[in-house]
Amino acid sequence: MNVNSFSELVEIAEKTNVSLDKVVLHWEMLDTGEAPEKIIEETSKLLAVMEEEYKLNEGKTFKTLVGLTGTNSKKMLDHLTNALIGKTAFTAAMIAVNMAESNAAMGRIVACPTGGSSGVMPGVLLTLEKIGVERQKLVSGLIVAGAIGKIISKRASLSGAESGCQAEIGSATAMAAGAAVHATGGTPKQVANAAALSLKSLMGLVCDPVGGFVEVPCVKRNASGAVIALLFSDMAKAGVESVIPFDEVAEAMGKVGRMMPESLRETGKGGIADTPTAKMIVQKLSNRFKL
């Protein structure tokens, strides 16, 4: 079965009345030979890693490798009841930052889809779990997210070095938005719309880590990814549609990535990394950090 577009998966789900996660599992079996039960089991294990690590790290501060982040999720937890944006969205942001800070401190994370963007998905899924979404629905949401990521990897890239941060935080956000829609009972079309709207809103985002390290601005971008994912999940479920279909948005993201100069693709030379303050920080660190 040669399915290369998300719209085909959505169409199959609609025509057959089979749920989107099951369509994805069959697609995956034909593509890689992996049995659906096995994929469900492994996906459930990945969700368990997110759950275990967050449980271990809630309210903690981290000693990160470079020391530019590490105390933010604790501050956010303390601020939770005052959050203007609402408790649910702020919880998602706080969990995302927690995971991203743990990543920067050599903690165990799930690269969903990458280390630098590993906070977005747990931010969204663990928040849904807190408000009562069944675990099994989160697993099927994560499977649907896998298909969104796979389509992006076919049509563009999931690597900051290749296509900028839009390919990492942008993809993670599209995946998490789709997962949230599916896990909370949205339709396959709404999943595609949520993913498209998310990726569009982060189109063009550059990868500009200070000194090349996965801390600034990566950690806090995970917070925005998680909140944007919830926002577009809600908008899609409200019936808002993306004028441009998800497959075309993914294709466009890949094209934008290919137009990006190397200085904006994880080299630590452009964007935020090219500011006077960033340069001063790198100057201070360089003696300590270069072999």
């Binding site: 995956e28 920067a104 994370i109 799930v110 590993s118 990521g149 990897s153 390290f213 996965v214």
Partner: peptide, 12 residues
């Protein structure tokens, strides 16, 4: 898709 949504690893 398991390689896309994973693996579990030590950061960063």
């Amino acid at each position: 898709i398991l390689e896309i949504i994973g693996p579990s690893m030590i950061g960063p």
